[in-house]
Design a protein around this nucleic acid. Structure first.
Lengths: 252, 252
DNA sequence: ATCTACTGCGTATCACATACGCTATATTGC
DNA sequence: GCAATATAGCGTATGTGATACGCAGTAGAT
Protein backbone atom coordinates (compact mmCIF):
# COMPACT_ATOMS: atom_id res chain seq x y z
CA UNK A 1 0.00 0.00 0.00
CA UNK A 2 2.69 2.39 0.98
CA UNK A 3 4.56 1.77 -2.20
CA UNK A 4 1.71 2.32 -4.58
CA UNK A 5 2.40 5.00 -7.16
CA UNK A 6 -0.09 7.35 -8.68
CA UNK A 7 1.70 7.53 -11.99
CA UNK A 8 2.77 4.17 -13.23
CA UNK A 9 6.49 4.67 -13.33
CA UNK A 10 8.55 2.85 -15.89
CA UNK A 11 9.90 -0.07 -13.93
CA UNK A 12 13.47 1.12 -14.03
CA UNK A 13 12.60 4.50 -12.58
CA UNK A 14 10.67 2.89 -9.81
CA UNK A 15 13.82 1.00 -8.93
CA UNK A 16 15.95 4.13 -8.72
CA UNK A 17 13.46 5.72 -6.43
CA UNK A 18 13.45 2.65 -4.27
CA UNK A 19 9.79 2.10 -4.97
CA UNK A 20 10.22 -1.49 -5.79
CA UNK A 21 8.19 -3.56 -3.38
CA UNK A 22 10.33 -6.19 -1.75
CA UNK A 23 8.18 -9.27 -1.53
CA UNK A 24 7.96 -10.96 1.81
CA UNK A 25 8.07 -14.61 0.96
CA UNK A 26 10.81 -16.75 -0.38
CA UNK A 27 14.48 -17.12 0.46
CA UNK A 28 16.47 -14.16 1.57
CA UNK A 29 18.23 -12.21 -1.10
CA UNK A 30 21.93 -12.78 -1.15
CA UNK A 31 22.76 -9.59 -2.98
CA UNK A 32 21.49 -6.06 -3.08
CA UNK A 33 20.96 -3.54 -5.82
CA UNK A 34 23.44 -1.21 -4.16
CA UNK A 35 26.06 -3.92 -4.10
CA UNK A 36 25.59 -4.66 -7.77
CA UNK A 37 25.71 -1.02 -8.72
CA UNK A 38 28.86 -0.44 -6.68
CA UNK A 39 30.58 -3.35 -8.32
CA UNK A 40 29.58 -2.20 -11.76
CA UNK A 41 30.88 1.27 -11.00
CA UNK A 42 34.19 -0.09 -9.83
CA UNK A 43 34.58 -1.95 -13.09
CA UNK A 44 33.59 1.08 -15.13
CA UNK A 45 36.02 3.28 -13.23
CA UNK A 46 38.95 1.04 -13.89
CA UNK A 47 38.18 -0.46 -17.28
CA UNK A 48 35.52 1.68 -18.85
CA UNK A 49 31.86 1.22 -19.45
CA UNK A 50 32.51 -1.35 -22.12
CA UNK A 51 33.96 -3.71 -19.55
CA UNK A 52 30.74 -3.71 -17.62
CA UNK A 53 29.04 -6.92 -18.62
CA UNK A 54 26.53 -8.79 -16.59
CA UNK A 55 28.92 -11.70 -16.39
CA UNK A 56 31.79 -9.57 -15.15
CA UNK A 57 29.74 -7.91 -12.49
CA UNK A 58 28.25 -11.17 -11.33
CA UNK A 59 31.62 -12.81 -11.30
CA UNK A 60 33.01 -10.20 -8.94
CA UNK A 61 30.12 -10.86 -6.66
CA UNK A 62 30.76 -14.55 -6.76
CA UNK A 63 27.59 -15.49 -8.54
CA UNK A 64 26.28 -16.16 -12.02
CA UNK A 65 25.18 -13.57 -14.51
CA UNK A 66 21.55 -14.49 -14.33
CA UNK A 67 21.36 -13.83 -10.64
CA UNK A 68 21.63 -10.13 -11.28
CA UNK A 69 18.35 -10.11 -13.10
CA UNK A 70 16.60 -10.70 -9.81
CA UNK A 71 17.64 -7.19 -8.88
CA UNK A 72 17.75 -5.34 -12.14
CA UNK A 73 15.37 -5.67 -15.05
CA UNK A 74 17.81 -5.00 -17.86
CA UNK A 75 21.31 -3.83 -18.38
CA UNK A 76 20.01 -0.41 -19.26
CA UNK A 77 18.42 -0.21 -15.87
CA UNK A 78 21.76 -1.01 -14.33
CA UNK A 79 23.25 1.84 -16.32
CA UNK A 80 20.62 4.20 -15.04
CA UNK A 81 21.34 3.14 -11.49
CA UNK A 82 25.05 3.53 -12.07
CA UNK A 83 24.51 7.00 -13.42
CA UNK A 84 22.51 8.06 -10.44
CA UNK A 85 24.98 6.63 -7.99
CA UNK A 86 27.94 8.18 -9.77
CA UNK A 87 26.37 11.61 -9.69
CA UNK A 88 25.78 11.46 -5.99
CA UNK A 89 24.29 14.43 -4.27
CA UNK A 90 25.47 17.89 -5.22
CA UNK A 91 27.80 19.32 -2.57
CA UNK A 92 26.04 21.36 0.08
CA UNK A 93 28.44 24.22 -0.50
CA UNK A 94 26.57 25.09 -3.69
CA UNK A 95 23.78 26.63 -1.67
CA UNK A 96 26.04 29.33 -0.33
CA UNK A 97 26.47 31.31 -3.54
CA UNK A 98 26.00 35.07 -3.18
CA UNK A 99 24.62 35.67 -6.68
CA UNK A 100 23.35 33.76 -9.65
CA UNK A 101 26.59 33.96 -11.58
CA UNK A 102 28.81 32.54 -8.90
CA UNK A 103 26.13 30.04 -8.07
CA UNK A 104 25.92 28.70 -11.60
CA UNK A 105 29.66 28.78 -11.97
CA UNK A 106 30.16 26.72 -8.84
CA UNK A 107 27.50 24.34 -10.02
CA UNK A 108 29.21 23.96 -13.38
CA UNK A 109 32.60 23.23 -11.86
CA UNK A 110 31.08 20.77 -9.43
CA UNK A 111 29.24 18.99 -12.20
CA UNK A 112 32.40 18.79 -14.22
CA UNK A 113 34.29 17.40 -11.26
CA UNK A 114 31.77 14.62 -10.86
CA UNK A 115 31.93 13.72 -14.53
CA UNK A 116 35.69 13.70 -14.46
CA UNK A 117 35.60 11.26 -11.60
CA UNK A 118 33.49 8.85 -13.64
CA UNK A 119 34.12 9.68 -17.24
CA UNK A 120 32.14 6.68 -18.39
CA UNK A 121 29.00 8.50 -17.30
CA UNK A 122 28.98 10.43 -20.56
CA UNK A 123 29.01 7.14 -22.46
CA UNK A 124 25.71 6.07 -21.04
CA UNK A 125 23.15 6.82 -23.69
CA UNK A 126 20.82 9.46 -22.31
CA UNK A 127 17.20 8.60 -22.53
CA UNK A 128 14.86 11.42 -21.92
CA UNK A 129 14.76 14.17 -19.34
CA UNK A 130 16.32 13.77 -15.88
CA UNK A 131 14.30 11.48 -13.67
CA UNK A 132 16.55 9.87 -11.11
CA UNK A 133 16.83 11.34 -7.62
CA UNK A 134 20.34 12.64 -7.95
CA UNK A 135 19.79 13.95 -11.43
CA UNK A 136 16.91 15.95 -10.07
CA UNK A 137 18.95 17.09 -7.09
CA UNK A 138 21.56 18.47 -9.43
CA UNK A 139 18.88 20.10 -11.51
CA UNK A 140 17.42 21.65 -8.41
CA UNK A 141 20.82 22.90 -7.37
CA UNK A 142 21.25 24.55 -10.75
CA UNK A 143 17.89 26.25 -10.57
CA UNK A 144 18.47 27.71 -7.13
CA UNK A 145 20.82 30.50 -8.17
CA UNK A 146 18.26 31.54 -10.76
CA UNK A 147 15.34 31.76 -8.36
CA UNK A 148 15.71 35.41 -7.53
CA UNK A 149 16.34 36.58 -11.05
CA UNK A 150 13.76 38.15 -13.31
CA UNK A 151 13.93 35.22 -15.71
CA UNK A 152 10.75 33.51 -16.76
CA UNK A 153 10.26 30.13 -15.20
CA UNK A 154 10.21 28.44 -18.57
CA UNK A 155 13.58 29.92 -19.42
CA UNK A 156 15.44 28.54 -16.45
CA UNK A 157 15.53 24.87 -17.40
CA UNK A 158 16.63 25.81 -20.89
CA UNK A 159 19.57 27.70 -19.50
CA UNK A 160 20.51 24.81 -17.26
CA UNK A 161 20.29 22.50 -20.22
CA UNK A 162 22.55 24.78 -22.17
CA UNK A 163 25.11 24.81 -19.43
CA UNK A 164 24.83 21.12 -18.92
CA UNK A 165 25.29 20.27 -22.56
CA UNK A 166 28.55 22.10 -22.70
CA UNK A 167 29.80 20.47 -19.55
CA UNK A 168 28.95 17.02 -20.80
CA UNK A 169 30.38 17.71 -24.18
CA UNK A 170 33.66 18.84 -22.74
CA UNK A 171 33.82 15.77 -20.56
CA UNK A 172 33.07 13.67 -23.61
CA UNK A 173 36.06 15.04 -25.39
CA UNK A 174 38.23 14.31 -22.43
CA UNK A 175 36.83 10.82 -22.30
CA UNK A 176 37.69 10.32 -25.96
CA UNK A 177 41.22 11.44 -25.44
CA UNK A 178 41.59 9.23 -22.42
CA UNK A 179 40.80 6.23 -24.60
CA UNK A 180 42.77 7.15 -27.66
CA UNK A 181 46.19 5.71 -28.19
CA UNK A 182 47.75 9.09 -27.72
CA UNK A 183 50.54 9.37 -25.20
CA UNK A 184 50.29 12.90 -23.85
CA UNK A 185 47.30 15.20 -23.70
CA UNK A 186 49.30 18.01 -25.28
CA UNK A 187 50.82 15.75 -27.86
CA UNK A 188 47.44 14.98 -29.31
CA UNK A 189 46.88 18.59 -30.21
CA UNK A 190 50.32 18.82 -31.72
CA UNK A 191 49.55 15.84 -33.89
CA UNK A 192 46.21 17.27 -34.79
CA UNK A 193 47.68 20.60 -35.68
CA UNK A 194 50.21 18.90 -37.88
CA UNK A 195 47.57 16.78 -39.51
CA UNK A 196 45.51 19.85 -40.35
CA UNK A 197 48.48 21.77 -41.65
CA UNK A 198 49.33 18.99 -44.04
CA UNK A 199 45.98 17.91 -45.30
CA UNK A 200 44.17 21.21 -45.74
CA UNK A 201 43.92 23.02 -49.02
CA UNK A 202 43.97 26.77 -48.30
CA UNK A 203 41.50 27.43 -51.07
CA UNK A 204 38.92 25.11 -49.71
CA UNK A 205 39.48 25.78 -46.03
CA UNK A 206 40.54 29.41 -45.83
CA UNK A 207 39.30 30.20 -42.35
CA UNK A 208 40.51 26.94 -40.93
CA UNK A 209 43.93 27.26 -42.46
CA UNK A 210 44.17 30.80 -41.16
CA UNK A 211 43.27 29.61 -37.69
CA UNK A 212 45.81 26.83 -37.88
CA UNK A 213 48.52 29.26 -38.88
CA UNK A 214 47.40 31.52 -36.10
CA UNK A 215 48.25 28.66 -33.78
CA UNK A 216 44.64 28.07 -32.86
CA UNK A 217 45.19 24.38 -32.32
CA UNK A 218 48.84 24.36 -31.44
CA UNK A 219 49.16 25.61 -27.93
CA UNK A 220 46.88 23.71 -25.67
CA UNK A 221 46.11 25.94 -22.75
CA UNK A 222 44.95 23.09 -20.64
CA UNK A 223 41.50 21.73 -20.22
CA UNK A 224 40.70 23.74 -17.13
CA UNK A 225 41.45 27.06 -18.70
CA UNK A 226 39.49 26.23 -21.81
CA UNK A 227 36.55 25.09 -19.77
CA UNK A 228 36.67 28.29 -17.75
CA UNK A 229 36.71 30.30 -20.94
CA UNK A 230 33.65 28.70 -22.47
CA UNK A 231 31.83 28.73 -19.18
CA UNK A 232 32.32 32.48 -18.95
CA UNK A 233 30.84 32.88 -22.43
CA UNK A 234 27.72 31.03 -21.40
CA UNK A 235 27.41 32.98 -18.20
CA UNK A 236 27.89 36.21 -20.11
CA UNK A 237 25.07 35.20 -22.40
CA UNK A 238 22.81 34.41 -19.48
CA UNK A 239 23.81 37.68 -17.89
CA UNK A 240 22.70 39.62 -20.93
CA UNK A 241 19.28 38.03 -20.71
CA UNK A 242 18.95 38.61 -16.99
CA UNK A 243 19.73 42.27 -17.47
CA UNK A 244 17.21 42.49 -20.28
CA UNK A 245 14.52 40.91 -18.12
CA UNK A 246 15.00 43.61 -15.50
CA UNK A 247 13.39 46.17 -17.79
CA UNK A 248 10.17 44.52 -18.87
CA UNK A 249 9.48 47.37 -21.28
CA UNK A 250 12.79 46.91 -23.01
CA UNK A 251 13.32 46.59 -26.73
CA UNK A 252 15.35 43.66 -28.08
CA UNK B 1 53.68 7.86 -55.03
CA UNK B 2 50.89 10.30 -55.45
CA UNK B 3 49.06 8.81 -52.55
CA UNK B 4 51.91 8.80 -50.12
CA UNK B 5 51.16 10.68 -46.92
CA UNK B 6 53.62 12.52 -44.78
CA UNK B 7 51.76 11.82 -41.61
CA UNK B 8 50.74 8.22 -41.35
CA UNK B 9 47.01 8.62 -41.15
CA UNK B 10 44.99 6.15 -39.17
CA UNK B 11 43.71 3.78 -41.82
CA UNK B 12 40.11 4.84 -41.42
CA UNK B 13 40.93 8.50 -41.97
CA UNK B 14 42.89 7.66 -45.06
CA UNK B 15 39.77 6.02 -46.39
CA UNK B 16 37.57 9.05 -45.80
CA UNK B 17 40.02 11.21 -47.63
CA UNK B 18 40.10 8.80 -50.50
CA UNK B 19 43.76 8.19 -49.95
CA UNK B 20 43.42 4.50 -50.09
CA UNK B 21 45.43 3.15 -52.97
CA UNK B 22 43.32 0.94 -55.17
CA UNK B 23 45.47 -2.01 -56.09
CA UNK B 24 45.66 -2.84 -59.75
CA UNK B 25 45.69 -6.59 -59.84
CA UNK B 26 42.99 -9.06 -59.07
CA UNK B 27 39.33 -9.28 -60.02
CA UNK B 28 37.30 -6.13 -60.39
CA UNK B 29 35.52 -4.90 -57.35
CA UNK B 30 31.82 -5.52 -57.44
CA UNK B 31 30.96 -2.90 -54.87
CA UNK B 32 32.17 0.50 -53.87
CA UNK B 33 32.67 2.25 -50.58
CA UNK B 34 30.13 4.88 -51.58
CA UNK B 35 27.56 2.22 -52.32
CA UNK B 36 28.10 0.58 -48.96
CA UNK B 37 27.91 3.85 -47.11
CA UNK B 38 24.75 4.89 -48.92
CA UNK B 39 23.07 1.63 -48.08
CA UNK B 40 24.09 1.88 -44.45
CA UNK B 41 22.72 5.41 -44.29
CA UNK B 42 19.42 4.33 -45.77
CA UNK B 43 19.09 1.69 -43.10
CA UNK B 44 20.05 4.12 -40.36
CA UNK B 45 17.58 6.69 -41.62
CA UNK B 46 14.68 4.31 -41.54
CA UNK B 47 15.50 2.01 -38.66
CA UNK B 48 18.12 3.73 -36.60
CA UNK B 49 21.82 3.19 -36.14
CA UNK B 50 21.24 0.02 -34.21
CA UNK B 51 19.81 -1.64 -37.28
CA UNK B 52 23.01 -1.09 -39.17
CA UNK B 53 24.77 -4.41 -39.03
CA UNK B 54 27.27 -5.68 -41.50
CA UNK B 55 24.92 -8.48 -42.42
CA UNK B 56 22.01 -6.14 -43.05
CA UNK B 57 24.03 -3.81 -45.20
CA UNK B 58 25.56 -6.66 -47.17
CA UNK B 59 22.21 -8.28 -47.60
CA UNK B 60 20.75 -5.18 -49.21
CA UNK B 61 23.62 -5.18 -51.60
CA UNK B 62 23.04 -8.80 -52.44
CA UNK B 63 26.28 -10.09 -50.97
CA UNK B 64 27.62 -11.63 -47.79
CA UNK B 65 28.68 -9.74 -44.71
CA UNK B 66 32.34 -10.52 -45.15
CA UNK B 67 32.48 -8.94 -48.56
CA UNK B 68 32.17 -5.53 -46.98
CA UNK B 69 35.48 -5.93 -45.25
CA UNK B 70 37.20 -5.62 -48.59
CA UNK B 71 36.08 -2.00 -48.59
CA UNK B 72 35.97 -1.04 -44.95
CA UNK B 73 38.38 -2.07 -42.24
CA UNK B 74 35.96 -2.19 -39.32
CA UNK B 75 32.42 -1.25 -38.52
CA UNK B 76 33.70 1.86 -36.81
CA UNK B 77 35.26 2.95 -40.02
CA UNK B 78 31.91 2.51 -41.70
CA UNK B 79 30.40 4.73 -39.04
CA UNK B 80 32.98 7.40 -39.70
CA UNK B 81 32.24 7.26 -43.39
CA UNK B 82 28.53 7.42 -42.72
CA UNK B 83 29.01 10.44 -40.53
CA UNK B 84 30.97 12.28 -43.15
CA UNK B 85 28.51 11.46 -45.89
CA UNK B 86 25.53 12.44 -43.75
CA UNK B 87 27.04 15.81 -42.97
CA UNK B 88 27.61 16.62 -46.59
CA UNK B 89 29.04 19.96 -47.49
CA UNK B 90 27.78 23.04 -45.71
CA UNK B 91 25.41 25.04 -47.91
CA UNK B 92 27.11 27.70 -49.98
CA UNK B 93 24.66 30.29 -48.71
CA UNK B 94 26.52 30.37 -45.40
CA UNK B 95 29.27 32.42 -46.97
CA UNK B 96 26.93 35.32 -47.59
CA UNK B 97 26.49 36.41 -44.00
CA UNK B 98 26.85 40.14 -43.42
CA UNK B 99 28.23 39.90 -39.88
CA UNK B 100 29.56 37.33 -37.46
CA UNK B 101 26.33 36.97 -35.56
CA UNK B 102 24.12 36.24 -38.49
CA UNK B 103 26.84 34.07 -39.94
CA UNK B 104 27.11 31.91 -36.86
CA UNK B 105 23.38 31.81 -36.48
CA UNK B 106 22.90 30.58 -40.02
CA UNK B 107 25.62 28.04 -39.46
CA UNK B 108 23.93 26.80 -36.31
CA UNK B 109 20.57 26.38 -37.96
CA UNK B 110 22.13 24.66 -40.93
CA UNK B 111 24.02 22.27 -38.69
CA UNK B 112 20.88 21.51 -36.79
CA UNK B 113 19.00 20.87 -40.00
CA UNK B 114 21.58 18.33 -41.07
CA UNK B 115 21.46 16.54 -37.76
CA UNK B 116 17.69 16.44 -37.83
CA UNK B 117 17.82 14.80 -41.21
CA UNK B 118 20.00 12.02 -39.84
CA UNK B 119 19.38 11.90 -36.13
CA UNK B 120 21.43 8.75 -35.77
CA UNK B 121 24.52 10.85 -36.37
CA UNK B 122 24.51 11.90 -32.75
CA UNK B 123 24.58 8.23 -31.74
CA UNK B 124 27.89 7.61 -33.38
CA UNK B 125 30.46 7.74 -30.62
CA UNK B 126 32.69 10.69 -31.29
CA UNK B 127 36.34 9.89 -31.28
CA UNK B 128 38.62 12.82 -31.17
CA UNK B 129 38.65 16.15 -32.97
CA UNK B 130 37.08 16.58 -36.42
CA UNK B 131 39.14 14.95 -39.15
CA UNK B 132 36.90 13.99 -42.04
CA UNK B 133 36.58 16.28 -45.05
CA UNK B 134 33.04 17.38 -44.41
CA UNK B 135 33.58 17.78 -40.70
CA UNK B 136 36.39 20.14 -41.52
CA UNK B 137 34.31 21.94 -44.12
CA UNK B 138 31.70 22.63 -41.50
CA UNK B 139 34.36 23.74 -39.07
CA UNK B 140 35.76 26.06 -41.69
CA UNK B 141 32.32 27.45 -42.38
CA UNK B 142 31.88 28.19 -38.69
CA UNK B 143 35.21 29.95 -38.45
CA UNK B 144 34.57 32.22 -41.42
CA UNK B 145 32.16 34.61 -39.71
CA UNK B 146 34.70 35.02 -36.93
CA UNK B 147 37.60 35.89 -39.18
CA UNK B 148 37.15 39.63 -39.09
CA UNK B 149 36.53 39.86 -35.39
CA UNK B 150 39.05 40.89 -32.80
CA UNK B 151 38.96 37.44 -31.23
CA UNK B 152 42.20 35.61 -30.62
CA UNK B 153 42.75 32.73 -32.97
CA UNK B 154 42.87 30.25 -30.14
CA UNK B 155 39.46 31.39 -28.94
CA UNK B 156 37.63 30.77 -32.15
CA UNK B 157 37.64 26.98 -32.16
CA UNK B 158 36.52 27.01 -28.56
CA UNK B 159 33.53 29.10 -29.43
CA UNK B 160 32.64 26.86 -32.31
CA UNK B 161 32.93 23.89 -30.05
CA UNK B 162 30.64 25.55 -27.58
CA UNK B 163 28.05 26.21 -30.22
CA UNK B 164 28.42 22.76 -31.64
CA UNK B 165 27.98 21.03 -28.33
CA UNK B 166 24.68 22.70 -27.74
CA UNK B 167 23.46 21.86 -31.21
CA UNK B 168 24.41 18.23 -30.85
CA UNK B 169 22.97 18.01 -27.41
CA UNK B 170 19.65 19.41 -28.52
CA UNK B 171 19.56 16.98 -31.40
CA UNK B 172 20.37 14.19 -28.98
CA UNK B 173 17.36 15.01 -26.91
CA UNK B 174 15.20 14.99 -29.97
CA UNK B 175 16.67 11.67 -30.98
CA UNK B 176 15.85 10.26 -27.55
CA UNK B 177 12.28 11.39 -27.76
CA UNK B 178 11.95 10.01 -31.25
CA UNK B 179 12.84 6.58 -29.90
CA UNK B 180 10.82 6.66 -26.70
CA UNK B 181 7.43 5.06 -26.60
CA UNK B 182 5.80 8.42 -26.19
CA UNK B 183 2.99 9.26 -28.55
CA UNK B 184 3.13 13.01 -29.00
CA UNK B 185 6.06 15.38 -28.57
CA UNK B 186 4.01 17.66 -26.35
CA UNK B 187 2.53 14.82 -24.41
CA UNK B 188 5.94 13.77 -23.19
CA UNK B 189 6.44 17.04 -21.40
CA UNK B 190 2.99 16.83 -19.92
CA UNK B 191 3.82 13.42 -18.54
CA UNK B 192 7.15 14.66 -17.32
CA UNK B 193 5.61 17.63 -15.63
CA UNK B 194 3.11 15.38 -13.92
CA UNK B 195 5.81 12.98 -12.88
CA UNK B 196 7.80 15.77 -11.29
CA UNK B 197 4.80 17.26 -9.57
CA UNK B 198 4.00 13.95 -7.94
CA UNK B 199 7.37 12.65 -6.99
CA UNK B 200 9.13 15.77 -5.73
CA UNK B 201 9.34 16.70 -2.10
CA UNK B 202 9.20 20.52 -1.86
CA UNK B 203 11.66 20.50 1.02
CA UNK B 204 14.29 18.65 -0.89
CA UNK B 205 13.71 20.23 -4.29
CA UNK B 206 12.58 23.77 -3.55
CA UNK B 207 13.79 25.42 -6.75
CA UNK B 208 12.65 22.59 -8.94
CA UNK B 209 9.22 22.45 -7.37
CA UNK B 210 8.89 26.20 -7.76
CA UNK B 211 9.82 25.93 -11.40
CA UNK B 212 7.34 23.13 -11.92
CA UNK B 213 4.59 25.18 -10.34
CA UNK B 214 5.64 28.09 -12.48
CA UNK B 215 4.84 25.88 -15.44
CA UNK B 216 8.47 25.61 -16.47
CA UNK B 217 8.00 22.16 -17.92
CA UNK B 218 4.33 22.27 -18.76
CA UNK B 219 3.99 24.35 -21.87
CA UNK B 220 6.32 23.13 -24.52
CA UNK B 221 7.04 26.02 -26.78
CA UNK B 222 8.27 23.83 -29.54
CA UNK B 223 11.76 22.66 -30.27
CA UNK B 224 12.49 25.40 -32.77
CA UNK B 225 11.66 28.21 -30.42
CA UNK B 226 13.66 26.67 -27.60
CA UNK B 227 16.61 26.15 -29.85
CA UNK B 228 16.41 29.73 -31.01
CA UNK B 229 16.33 30.88 -27.43
CA UNK B 230 19.44 29.01 -26.34
CA UNK B 231 21.23 29.92 -29.51
CA UNK B 232 20.66 33.60 -28.79
CA UNK B 233 22.15 33.15 -25.32
CA UNK B 234 25.32 31.68 -26.76
CA UNK B 235 25.56 34.38 -29.39
CA UNK B 236 25.01 37.01 -26.73
CA UNK B 237 27.86 35.52 -24.77
CA UNK B 238 30.12 35.52 -27.78
CA UNK B 239 29.06 39.07 -28.49
CA UNK B 240 30.14 40.22 -25.08
CA UNK B 241 33.59 38.82 -25.68
CA UNK B 242 33.89 40.30 -29.13
CA UNK B 243 33.02 43.71 -27.75
CA UNK B 244 35.55 43.29 -24.98
CA UNK B 245 38.25 42.35 -27.45
CA UNK B 246 37.72 45.60 -29.31
CA UNK B 247 39.27 47.54 -26.42
CA UNK B 248 42.54 45.72 -25.78
CA UNK B 249 43.13 47.85 -22.69
CA UNK B 250 39.84 46.83 -21.17
CA UNK B 251 39.29 45.60 -17.66
CA UNK B 252 37.49 42.31 -17.02
C1' DA C 1 3.04 -29.60 7.88
C1' DT C 2 2.16 -27.86 3.67
C1' DC C 3 1.70 -24.47 0.24
C1' DT C 4 3.70 -21.16 -2.65
C1' DA C 5 6.05 -17.16 -4.02
C1' DC C 6 10.34 -16.52 -4.22
C1' DT C 7 15.83 -17.26 -4.82
C1' DG C 8 20.15 -18.60 -7.16
C1' DC C 9 21.65 -20.09 -11.24
C1' DG C 10 22.78 -23.69 -15.15
C1' DT C 11 21.67 -24.12 -19.83
C1' DA C 12 20.28 -22.54 -24.19
C1' DT C 13 19.35 -19.11 -27.66
C1' DC C 14 20.19 -15.43 -30.51
C1' DA C 15 22.61 -11.58 -32.56
C1' DC C 16 26.81 -9.72 -34.14
C1' DA C 17 31.52 -8.62 -35.41
C1' DT C 18 35.07 -10.54 -37.41
C1' DA C 19 39.20 -14.12 -38.28
C1' DC C 20 40.43 -17.72 -41.67
C1' DG C 21 40.82 -19.87 -45.71
C1' DC C 22 39.22 -21.45 -50.28
C1' DT C 23 38.35 -20.72 -55.08
C1' DA C 24 37.85 -17.79 -59.03
C1' DT C 25 39.80 -13.78 -61.62
C1' DA C 26 42.40 -9.98 -63.61
C1' DT C 27 47.08 -7.94 -64.33
C1' DT C 28 51.73 -8.13 -65.15
C1' DG C 29 56.40 -9.90 -66.31
C1' DC C 30 58.23 -12.93 -69.58
C1' DG D 1 50.06 -15.45 -75.15
C1' DC D 2 51.08 -17.66 -70.52
C1' DA D 3 52.15 -18.43 -66.06
C1' DA D 4 52.63 -16.18 -61.56
C1' DT D 5 50.42 -13.55 -58.16
C1' DA D 6 47.68 -10.41 -55.75
C1' DT D 7 43.45 -9.68 -55.22
C1' DA D 8 37.93 -10.51 -55.07
C1' DG D 9 33.70 -12.73 -53.13
C1' DC D 10 32.24 -15.16 -49.53
C1' DG D 11 31.11 -19.69 -46.64
C1' DT D 12 32.23 -21.20 -42.24
C1' DA D 13 33.71 -20.82 -37.61
C1' DT D 14 34.68 -18.42 -33.35
C1' DG D 15 33.93 -15.55 -29.54
C1' DT D 16 31.36 -12.40 -26.80
C1' DG D 17 27.33 -10.74 -24.70
C1' DA D 18 22.41 -10.20 -23.33
C1' DT D 19 18.84 -12.58 -21.78
C1' DA D 20 14.72 -16.27 -21.94
C1' DC D 21 13.51 -20.52 -19.50
C1' DG D 22 13.14 -23.67 -16.15
C1' DC D 23 14.47 -26.28 -12.08
C1' DA D 24 15.46 -27.19 -7.37
C1' DG D 25 15.84 -25.50 -2.91
C1' DT D 26 13.97 -22.07 0.85
C1' DA D 27 11.19 -19.32 4.04
C1' DG D 28 7.05 -17.04 5.38
C1' DA D 29 1.88 -17.80 5.41
C1' DT D 30 -1.93 -20.82 6.50
Amino acid sequence: MENSQKVSLPASIATVWGRRARPAKGPKQGLSVAQIVDTAITIADTEGLGAVTMARVANRLGTGAMSLYRYVATKDELFTLMLDAALGQPPASLTAAPDWRRGLSAWAWATRAVLYQHLWVVRIPVSGPPTTPNQLRWLDAALRPLQNTALHDAEKPLLVLLLNSYIRSEASLVADLAVSTAPEPTEIMTHYNQFLAEILDPHEFPALVAAVHGGAFANDEGADREFAFSLERILDGIGVLIEARKQPVAER
